[in-house]
Write a protein that binds this DNA or RNA. Sequence first.
DNA 1: CCTACCGATCGGTAGG
DNA 2: CCTACCGATCGGTAGG
Lengths: 215, 215
Amino acid sequence: MKEAATAPTAAPSSGRPAAGSRRAAILAAAGAAFGERGYHATSMRDLAASLDLQGASLYAHISAKEELLLEIVDAAADAFLAVADGLDPALAPRERLRAMVGGHLAVIAEKLQSATVFFDEWKHLSGPARARVVEKRDRYQAALRAIVEEGAATGAFLVADAHLATLLVLSTLNWTYRWYDPAGRLSLGELTDGICAYIEGALGAERPQAEGAGR
Amino acid sequence: MKEAATAPTAAPSSGRPAAGSRRAAILAAAGAAFGERGYHATSMRDLAASLDLQGASLYAHISAKEELLLEIVDAAADAFLAVADGLDPALAPRERLRAMVGGHLAVIAEKLQSATVFFDEWKHLSGPARARVVEKRDRYQAALRAIVEEGAATGAFLVADAHLATLLVLSTLNWTYRWYDPAGRLSLGELTDGICAYIEGALGAERPQAEGAGR
DNA sequence: CCTACCGATCGGTAGG
DNA sequence: CCTACCGATCGGTAGG
């Protein structure tokens, strides 16, 4: 999701930043700090200092530290869910899987810090906030499972246990945030192709050879 | 009756717990607490309370909170390394991979809390302790990579990029601590078989069919 | 292993 | 967005 393009027209030189822009900056700084050092290892004063503010000044824009965590985690959960919800149901399982893998990796690559907070810090959310996030994660998993099961039913995939296969595909995908490096040897596209090939092999999808039947 | 009954009489040395047993109990409680709530979210008083002690009493057995974290993380790292070091170099790549996968999953299953702390809390170690753990993790990765590369060389595996394949196998394995349930539907053995099949497929190992050459 | 206590720091509020 | 400040809690020490 793009930021409201900081228009080169008017406004900026008048000094007054856009309404929510300070808040957005706080969220961005929190995402970076929580992702790198962890939620509880980041104090509100640490966070404020990274924005050249006093600790107490943050509370002009937010109401509590956990509010920051919740917004970061929730936005990441929504980004993943948007991938699942955007799948074309008309596609065959293999192509739908490929779209989901590509979308998943794109979220991790483009929102690496938020994704890290999502995966590692969600457990520090309390009560209802946490439950809501778990529910979104479960919906995402269900979407992947539907693909795996359809592929198993049509013979596109050879899986003995769709539930286990789903967990393993998620495992393959989820851990990538721990080693993905935007400046790495492989581009995101190359990485995505390699991961798709790995997962398709794991699911027993026939290797892309010249098979007679077309689609 | 048992708790405050610190016998006013001279305590019989027969009732005295073994030298390091209190320390071991503290480590076990720390592993559980750090794994469930996280290192920084667990206070020394929380930890002490779970052992029916006062916070300050812990320091009769340890010198600092981080010492607990280091010992837990280091022991888990050593458990993983023991798997890599225990591999029979005479085995073929596929069998060596199978042994490593089985050993990896056994560590996670048998030391689930320690493994969780290892994966999620190691980043809170400072300086040299952290560097030592990273080095062990890298040695483990190198051991897996050697298997993948040998398999690629002999044709046992069909992988285009051994480094990427290594990272993906590790991803598949590492995330399991997030969903492994000792009371789950599948036994550890069934899980291991399923994960081996998944990874072998992913690496393009020929499916176990009746091929001429036997063993 | 306890009581008593330390300085530091935490998240957050009051009031401009 | 600042200064000033709050009560709570932190990791850890002293001394028995």
